[in-house]
């Protein structure tokens, strides 16, 4: 069973899952970096994005429209949550945790109310169906597509953070919010934008992921721990950390499930606990 083909295919699957995780977790990491908010509703953005995308695909048949609509709709929800609720709780970690879980429960119930309890799958557009063959191996086109999307998003995020004025402001706010505010950066507006962007990315991940994981009740709390593991391992607020963390978690999860099915979550969370024991701020994080 453990042949070289097994290793290549599992590595590929791990990479593509890691790519999807990056879409989900990069936003969570940025949100934490700028606002220090532990957002337990982040998995809900993923799930709601998937549901909105599903409805749009049913109406229009367009996958691109589904991704766009999901991202915009959930981005607006994220912005509303930040502006109307989370902003009232600066620095109150426990309050933020309870409030975001409250929203997560409400979103879960609303999704159940609107879309019912049946699992659905978002149809893959025709040009992304099928597989690319290389000798005896075949790689599903859709998984390659996910990897490409994640690479493009990562590159854009990196360019935006590293090369633009807004990016410099965000980095300043991550380093020291008070100081950034002091030198004239509008941190509240920046926070709002980052929160919206994070929700957008998670929702886009939900639509894209909905085509290969499915869209179903409970998806929110299923992906949430993964996003947190990525962010914790990579270091809170670090984009390179989110990239490395996503790949690491994608691979660990995939090999764990394939090699030790009984201990698969353990093989994911135990290395993370180990990393934290050695480096409490994660691989790329700063205290």
């Amino acid at each position: 069973m453990v042949s070289s083909e097994f290793w290549i295919i599992q590595t590929f699957n791990g990479l593509s899952y890691g790519a999807l995780l990056f879409l989900l977790a990069s936003g969570l990491s940025l949100i934490f970096g700028v606002m220090r908010v532990v957002n337990l509703a982040h998995g809900s953005y993923f799930m709601l994005g998937g549901y909105v995308g599903l409805s749009v695909v049913w109406r229009t048949g367009s996958f691109a429209a589904a991704v766009l609509a999901g991202a915009v709709a959930i981005g607006l929800i994220g912005i509303a949550m930040e502006r109307l609720f989370l902003r009232r709780l600066p620095g109150q970690t426990l309050g933020q945790v309870l409030m975001t879980i409250g929203f997560a429960l409400i979103f879960q119930d609303l999704a159940l109310l609107i879309w019912g309890g049946d699992p659905y799958s978002i149809p893959v557009p025709r040009f992304l169906q099928g597989a690319v063959r290389a000798g005896a191996l075949s790689f599903p086109t859709y998984r390659i597509f996910i990897i490409v999307v994640a690479v493009v998003v990562a590159a854009l995020l990196w360019l935006a953070l590293d090369r633009t004025r807004v990016g410099a402001r965000i980095r300043a706010a991550v380093d020291d919010g008070e100081m950034a505010q002091g030198v004239g950066i509008n941190v509240p507006t920046l926070s709002l934008a980052v929160f919206g962007l994070g929700a957008c990315l998670a929702a886009a991940g939900g639509v894209i992921g909905g085509a290969f994981l499915g869209v179903y009740p409970g998806a929110d709390f299923e992906v949430l721990p993964y996003a947190f593991v990525v962010v914790i391992v990579g270091g809170l607020g670090s984009l390179p950390g989110a990239m490395v963390g996503s790949l690491l978690v994608g691979l660990l999860d995939n090999f764990g499930k394939a090699l030790f099915p009984e201990l698969s979550y353990f093989t994911l969370f135990a290395p993370m606990a180990l990393i934290l024991a050695l480096r409490p701020t994660g691989l790329f994080g700063r205290a």
């Binding site: 945790v97 721990p225 593991v229 914790i232 099915p261 009984e262 698969s264 409490p280």
Partner: peptide, 25 residues
């Protein structure tokens, strides 16, 4: 070893270790 938010995150992760074992073992 951790404080504040990191303590929160680490206890979350450790809780998930137990959940993972309960779910998969």
């Amino acid at each position: 070893r951790a404080t504040g938010t990191y303590f929160l995150m680490i206890t979350l992760a450790l809780g998930m270790v137990v959940w993972g074992l309960a779910f998969r073992w």
